[in-house]
Structure formats: structure tokens, C-alpha cells
Amino acid sequence: MAEAIKLQEFTCDFKDEVANRIPEANFDLCLTCGTCTGGCPASEQYGMDPRKFLRMLLLGMDDEIKKSPWAWVCTMCGRCMSACPMKINIPKFVYNVRASWDRDKRPKGIRGSCDQHIKAGNAMGVPKEDFVFTVEDVANEIREASPEFSDLEITADRVGAYMALNQNSREPVTEPDELGPLWKILHRAKADWTYPTVMWGGENYCMFLADDEGWRYIMEEFVYHIEHNLKCKVVVNTE
């Protein structure tokens, strides 16, 4: 039989901690209506749902929250918050639960991708030279295969290009042929663009890992490269 929760045993340390970090999160305004849970595809996984998770925060069940793997099943998609009549920021709550885990206890796959991104500028850990080589190789094939793209030119770090494009690093690594269609469209549109070679991966696993420091570092390096080195006017997210 389920045990009753003894409220006097709880203090709400974690709630206070998270609320300090996100003052606009409005945790105390929860009406327990369950609209969040009704529209959440992660509901019931590991016996958890957004309402339950939030109630646990408000009841001070800090250990149970931090132990639950549910924070890694929720995708922080934001549907709960957008449906919530009180606009409670459940995704940021989940982000902070993730951040409360020891870094080396967080999921290995996500952590590995974040570490690679910090080190190599993309989650697959592709060295810059390999990225540039793959791009040139695929571009060569296209130039040879189709006369209408014989003048296709793909540049990396071209100073003064109007646009800088990021690219999900799985494309050059696991399916390089998928680069071609994107380039062909840009070629047809006569776009003036280049690939930056600093933090060029379009993905962001440090955000998923809730590694604030790593995430910030990636963004700062990227912005510096675009602003000070390449001087592009527009950054284009390709996904």
C-alpha cells in the first residue's frame, strides 16, 4: 500500500533554489488542474507526469525529484507551459532538475556529445579539417555529376559572406550526400553564404545536458567568430 506523504518532514529547499533562478516561473500558482499532464506525451512514463513532478516540488520531495529519471524522458518541448492557465514554467523546472544531477551521472550519450561540442565545435567531434575535407569532396562530386552545378562553390570561413550557415554534424559524418540538396537550393537562390568552422554544429547537447557553462562557452565562441572574424550579417539555422 502506498505510504502517506508526511508533510512536516519536508522543507522546500529545491523549490526555493529553482525559484530564485527563474523568478518568473510562478510555481506557487499551480491550480493542480492537470492540463499540463493531459497534453503531455511523457505522462505516465516512469509513473510520472508534469503535474505530479511539480506537486512534488511544491511539497518539498526534493530527493524523489532528483532521483527520478523522468527529467530525461521529458523533452522540455513546452506544451505543458503553453497550455497552463497560470503559465508555469515547467520546462525550466525540468532543466534545473537535470542541472541538479552530478555532471558525471547525467546520460552518457548527451554528456559525450556536449563534451565533443566544447572540444571540436560539433557533437560528433569532427575535427575542423575533416569537415572542410568532406564538404569539398561532396562539392566535387556534385560539380562532376551535374553540369548545371559545375560552378558550385562551397566556402568555409569566408570573411564578409552575407550569411553564415550552421549544419547538424550528423550530416557530414553519417550522411554526407544530404549536404548536396541544401547547397543546390542555395545555389539556385544565388545565396551569398559560408560555413563557419568554429562551433559550426547546429545541434546543442550542452543545452540538453543542462550544462550552463558549456552552453555559454559554445555560444560565446560562435558569436565572437561570426562578429569579429567573419562579419556576417545573418546566421542561418539549417534545421
Binding site: 497534453g39 506525451p41 530525461w72 524522458v73 521529458c74 518541448c77 506544451r79 546520460p107
Partner: peptide, 21 residues
């Protein structure tokens, strides 16, 4: 609805839950 692949879920290790999602 989120497809369930977001938030790092594809590399998060909870495959059964990701697919149920």
C-alpha cells in the same frame, strides 16, 4: 506534439520511454 526526439532524448538512453512518448 513533440515527436519525442527532442531534449537529447535520442541519446538519453531511455529508449523504451522515448518510443512510448
Amino acid at each position: 506534439y513533440c515527436c519525442g526526439g527532442g531534449g537529447g532524448a535520442l541519446q538519453g538512453g531511455h529508449t523504451e520511454q522515448r518510443r512510448a512518448y
